[in-house]
């Protein structure tokens, strides 16, 4: 019986909301799969949508973007810009054949540890469904 595919998921979280929410999930000892690796930025507004394309090139099978709820952004407007940018990115990715199950975006506030756990589980499950993402992957560089 083949081992279930373990997807490699990169997550970009904003410092003030989702990163804190994930911290809360940790403090509350909620358990979730170990496939998600977090990169901390100060605001979802910082996240260049092309990071997602780059992540796929660098071997990720799935990407999560998460930040503050609209209206609650620590920097007032950053997540509004993120929302627009990722709406366009998502349309583009789906159009060129990237399974929508590979890209997740969520609003998780600093008090929503449980929601973060749900987002992780959803992302891992759906990435498992569509399997490893080889289409964009760069060949490993052996220096």
């Amino acid at each position: 019986m083949s081992e279930q595919f373990k997807p490699n998921i990169v997550a970009f979280l904003c410092n003030w909301c989702t990163y804190a929410g994930a911290d809360l999930a940790g403090t509350s000892r909620m358990q979730y799969p170990a496939n998600v690796h977090i990169i901390r930025v100060m605001c979802t507004g910082r996240i260049n949508p092309l990071f997602v394309v780059n992540a796929f090139q660098q071997g990720a099978d799935g990407v999560i973007i998460s930040g503050c709820h609209p209206g609650d952004c620590h920097y007032m407007e950053g997540n509004f810009y993120a929302r627009r940018r990722f709406t366009m990115l998502r349309e583009m990715l789906e159009y060129v054949g990237v399974e929508p199950e590979r890209f997740h975006m969520s609003w998780v506030s600093a008090s929503e540890g449980a929601k973060w756990k749900d987002v992780v589980e959803e992302a891992v499950e759906s990435a498992q469904k569509v399997g490893p993402f080889d289409q964009f992957r760069r060949n490993k560089i052996n220096w």
Binding site: F80, Y81, R83, R84, T87, H104, W107, D118
Partner: peptide, 16 residues
């Protein structure tokens, strides 16, 4: 410019 502006009611149906 499109991506240098936003509306508070921009759609977000794909966002969890």
């Amino acid at each position: 410019p499109l991506l240098a502006s936003y509306r508070p009611d921009d759609q977000e149906d794909f966002i969890l």
